[in-house]
Simulated assay, not measured.
Amino acid sequence: MAEEPAEIRRGRGQALIDLAREDLELYGVGELEERIEALQAEIARSRAQMQRKQAGRAAADALFSKRD
């Protein structure tokens, strides 16, 4: 039995690069509105993740900072 070839792993951020290169002329107004909503949701998700990371960093800094 032949094994299926493994999927090629895409680089980090490659999906965003591919998305930015997409030809928007092919979309209708409604589709563009849906695309904008999806992108705004992704921005909100990215910001929430960034805030979690900043909070974790602040907690670590507070824990390991020098105390006089």
Rank of each mutant, 00 (worst) to 15 (best):
Q49W: 10
Q51W: 06
P5A: 02
A41N: 07
E33A: 05
E4D: 08
A44Q: 15
Q40I: 00
L24V: 04
I17D: 11
L16F: 14
E34Q: 09
R52T: 04
E31W: 01
G13L: 09
K53W: 08
E33F: 07
R52L: 10
Q54L: 03
E37D: 12
E31I: 01
V29C: 13
K53I: 09
A20W: 07
A38C: 03
G56S: 10
R10S: 14
A15P: 04
A38D: 06
R52Y: 06
Q54W: 03
A59F: 05
R67E: 05
E31T: 01
G56T: 06
A62H: 02
G28D: 14
R47I: 08
L19I: 00
L26E: 03
A38M: 06
G13P: 08
F64W: 15
P5S: 00
I36G: 05
G13T: 12
V29F: 14
V29I: 14
A44E: 15
I36E: 13
A62F: 03
L24S: 01
E37Y: 09
M1F: 11
R12A: 15
E22H: 02
E4I: 07
A60V: 08
M1P: 04
L39H: 04
E37H: 11
G28L: 05
L16C: 13
A20I: 07
A62M: 02
G30S: 08
G11C: 09
E34D: 13
A62T: 01
F64S: 06
D23G: 01
L32H: 09
I36D: 13
D23E: 00
Q49N: 10
R57L: 15
R21A: 07
A20R: 08
P5V: 03
I43A: 10
E7I: 01
D18V: 00
A38T: 06
D68F: 14
Q49D: 12
R9K: 14
E22M: 00
A44K: 13
L24C: 00
L16R: 13
M1K: 11
